[in-house]
Nucleic acid binder design. Structure first.
Lengths: 337, 337
DNA sequence: GTCGTTCATGTGATCGATCACATACGAGCC
DNA sequence: GGCTCGTATGTGATCGATCACATGAACGAC
């Protein structure tokens, strides 16, 4: 009594347009027309096909579509490997926006500092035939690699402009920085320092530029500058250095570094905002709960993600860019004396 | 004098295996063998082909490969739309791990609370023929939707077990919670409260379970429980409620809520850790710079992401799970009296 | 010296869609 | 009637890879 092997299940593989066509009593091409909602189709026919699709639990094969139409309907996101709040929320918003338009989103993280890693990431996305790239963490090196590889993929950078992106968004960064700086100056600070992000980040250099511009406009020198790497730890170190130079106010390039500065002030037995005013950038959700609650510049990162996708997909009705907003909390005050 | 339209550029479309084959003087199949590094290939032949590929700047067409091999080499990540640190860093690590193994990663965000949104996200990934799913923010509803759709895609959940994932990882959460709770008990606290995450999150319920278990083991009641939504704001509210009930220590389900609790204590003119001890969970990079620096439980989220991918791709040499680690900083101390 | 094996390579069908083109039918017009 | 035109649908080639199978050469075993 030997159990003989079953002749295998009748149809292990998924339904194709042909299967649907057969069930609906039409040609495969008609099914394809339904899929791409072609205008000249009788409604009765369309319904028959749709019914058949449901019955067979039909799923169009994305690979086949991509192959024959030579359109991948895929957008690549080039990001850094960090889990930072800013990039992450932009990515999420970009994904939602893209999916809403029938696109898929693949991500590729690059180290950013490592040219090889950037190349690999870009190459990966190019191999997938991504129709466009959203560069989330725009470092000069990433953009350089992108140009150098010169794969003909259009790309849009977030939060800072790349070659293809005219003006608009880059203003945000400068304007935001000016907002923060102006606030400190208006409070009466004259010795205001800046903790800049890594110089190779476009955002960082633009914020720095905004800081300089604003001080210059008030006839103040902008020589109190320290650099960090976006982390709280680096903010702590940078703030310590700036305090030695006698600043009474600090504009930090992001909220994490501002938090580090807050911590450095405490360690130096200084009161914030009494002895030292601090402004951050980004308005991370936690900023309102820092001690003291942080004055910062709010950016709508999610909106930036959405807008990047819209721009990429050529919806050039691109509304004017969202302006950053200064959120005044408790970490800033007039200098004590 | 009419400019006649050019007969168009000679070969606008990219090189295929056939083009490479012609240049290398071999058959298209041999090219394919090089691509998939087939064992029986003379080295000279392989070199010829590789040279031809470089010369033509050949990129294998992913869609065509997927179609004919019926393998998408794609992993889907099902995530929530938040920009939180935890999920984001796991996603990044998972991506790197997947790419290292020749897989691509597409993401799909779901609202998590909205069943429709979850369905859409899962469906999207299924349509892409993802070979496996990594569920980054495991809420019961997401898992339910996943089972209900019963598309035959294997999936792995991060940080908490799903149907397919036996034991291992889920311990992490419980163990971590016990670690935190035990620390507070060892300091002499008897009225310790917990700020739990949303009940529909598996992580939240597991941490809560760990908290309860540990207290029970010491003969202490675990009735001082408030719920939050992971945000600092909710932590603030929950902590305020717990303080009314006279707790001397709080274990928060994540660092953001712990930060909110820190802020609530300050608002209530209580000193941390003198009047109130607080422990968080996750060890976000900023935790060391909170005021005071936060005692918390460190999880290696990136490692979790990597491991999820390994598990998914059937590398069952899955090393024993990484144990969470208690990081003692300055937010915990013995009760004042 | 023929046979079976293994290695190295080629030939044609195939995956599941779209595309280019053909066809059938009815309406409108001279 | 004969023409053109627009709508609705079908036929076969095609995208770029892999797969199944065939073939030719080299080599040892009997």
């Amino acid at each position: 009594m030997t159990a003989h092997s079953d002749p295998e299940d009748p149809r292990p593989r998924a339904a194709s347009v042909f299967d649907v066509a057969k069930v609906a009593g039409v040609s495969h091409q008609t099914v394809s027309r339904v899929l791409n909602d072609h205008p000249s189709l009788r409604d009765a026919t369309r319904q028959k096909v749709l019914t058949a699709m449901r019955e067979l639990n039909y799923r169009p094969n994305a690979a086949a579509r991509a192959l024959s139409s030579s359109r991948s309907r895929m957008i690549g996101i080039l990001s850094t490997s960090s889990g930072e709040y800013g990039p992450a929320s932009s990515v999420a918003a970009a994904e939602t926006a893209a999916r809403g338009r029938g696109y898929s989103v693949t991500i590729a993280n690059a180290d950013g500092l490592d040219p090889l890693s950037v190349n690999e990431a870009v190459n990966h996305l190019a191999n997938l035939a991504a129709e466009g790239l959203v560069v989330v963490a725009p470092q000069t090196r990433v953009l350089a690699a992108l140009s150098a590889l010169s794969i003909g993929i259009p790309f849009v950078t977030l939060q800072a402009s790349g070659p293809e992106t005219p003006g608009a968004r880059e203003l945000d960064q400068v304007v935001g920085a000016r907002l923060a700086t102006a606030h400190l100056v208006a409070l009466g600070h004259t010795r205001v320092g800046h903790i800049a992000g890594p110089p190779e980040w476009l955002d960082a250099s633009q914020r720095l530029a905004g800081f300089r511009d604003e001080l210059a406009q008030h006839g103040l020198g902008a020589d109190l500058i320290a650099s960090g790497d976006w982390s709280a730890a680096s903010g702590y170190r940078a703030a310590t250095a700036l305090l030695d130079q006698g600043v009474t106010a600090i504009f930090a390039g992001n909220d994490q570094m501002a938090l580090g500065a807050l911590s450095a002030a405490t360690a130096a037995r200084l009161e914030v905002p009494g002895d030292l005013s601090i402004v951050g950038f980004d308005d991370v959700p936690e900023a309102a709960y820092y001690h003291p609650p942080l004055t910062t510049v709010r950016q709508d990162l999610a909106e930036a993600g959405r807008r990047a996708v819209a721009l990429l997909l050529g919806e050039s009705d691109a509304a004017p860019s969202v302006q950053p907003e200064l959120i005044v909390r408790a970490s800033t005050a007039p200098p004590r004396r």
